[in-house]
């Protein structure tokens, strides 16, 4: 455990405005929860659970609960390690400046220890209680998010969010592997769906929200390549996403409930993406269709995975 002077130095490294008296306080347990990014966790838990319920084999409810818990803990560990690495960047952005590390409420050592122990614990628990394949994919997703996305690509390329999308696409694959012990075409298509959904989802938000990523030295697409190119890329990623979303139906991997629901939802998504790609709007406050695409993209992912589960439960 770090001593008070070490904590002071850590906080100063993180660019903390904290005073000695506030730094000397041990981090509150709520700050550890904030470190795990619980809002991101909820989407990951949902897609992981949907992947598990969509699998043809039933899983013991308790073991299924443990698998979902491990997915959530793995996502939390990834979030913690991301904040540990990016503490100095977070300190330079208004949106993230109040996170536990840049605000000086926690030391970097504590965040690193929390992230490593929770991540290792989640993989071990998954391996021992569920199966080794799901544990291996969970470990891969954590390592991918931390090393490939956070450390390597995020500060180097405006396509960073595309790569980051891969890390968020693993949970349905893990859920499926937890239930069946193997990987099949359907979870791979679900992986592709979430992977290809991420760029239009994130970039539609990036168009209408003023961010200070540029000031923090992170190359985000609207800043590096401009609005026109961002709009074009939104459509470019939506087209293969449409294919990945609908493909399970003609391939006979799902039933009509998923097929009909996803076809309608995907058609709306595509129509919004086309409208965004054609829009000439420069004023962020007037970007209504971009807001609509972002809001719909969140609903879309929940609805598609919900339709998948309903399809399995009703038609099985």
């Amino acid at each position: 455990m770090a001593t008070a002077p070490e904590m002071m130095i850590d906080a100063q490294v993180a660019g903390s405005p904290a005073t000695m008296s506030s730094v000397a306080l041990p981090a509150d347990w709520r700050d550890f929860i904030a470190l795990a990014k619980p809002r991101v966790m909820s989407l990951v838990v949902f897609t992981g659970l949907a992947g598990m319920l969509a699998a043809p084999q039933a899983i013991n409810p308790l073991i299924g609960f443990v698998a979902v818990l491990c997915i959530a803990l793995g996502a939390g560990a990834s979030g913690a390690l991301n904040q540990w690495w990016e503490a100095d960047i977070d300190a330079r952005m208004r949106r993230t400046a109040n996170r536990p590390l840049p605000a000086g409420r926690m030391t970097r050592d504590a965040a690193l220890a929390f992230g490593v122990s929770v991540g290792t614990g989640s993989v071990l628990l998954m391996g021992l209680a569920v199966n080794y394949l799901s544990a291996a994919i969970l470990a891969l997703s954590i390592l991918f998010y931390v090393f490939v996305y956070t450390i390597w690509l995020k500060p180097r390329t405006p396509q960073n969010i595309v790569i980051g999308g891969a890390a968020g696409a693993f949970p349905p694959l893990i859920g499926w592997a937890a239930a069946t012990g193997h990987v099949a075409p359907l979870p791979l298509l679900l992986f592709a769906l979430v992977f290809l959904w991420t760029p239009p989802h994130f970039w539609s938000l990036a168009l209408f929200v003023k961010s200070d990523y540029a000031a923090a030295g992170i190359p985000m697409l609207p800043v590096v390549s401009g609005q026109k190119e961002t709009r074009r890329q939104i459509l470019l990623y939506t087209l293969p996403m449409v294919a990945a979303a609908i493909a399970p139906w003609p391939m006979g991997l799902v039933g009509a409930i998923y097929g009909v629901a996803t076809s309608i939802l995907t058609a709306i998504f595509l129509a919004l993406a086309i409208t965004v790609s054609r829009s000439q709007e420069k004023e962020q406050a007037r970007m209504k269709v971009e807001r609509r695409l972002f809001a719909f993209s969140v609903f879309y992912l929940f609805a598609v995975f919900g339709a998948l589960v309903a399809d399995r439960l009703i038609l099985a």
């Binding site: 008296s21 000397a24 306080l25 041990p26 509150d28």
Partner: peptide, 12 residues
């Protein structure tokens, strides 16, 4: 400060 420190340790 000591009271706050002990309170924080207790909640942890």
């Amino acid at each position: 400060e000591q009271r706050r420190y002990q309170q924080r340790q207790r909640s942890r």
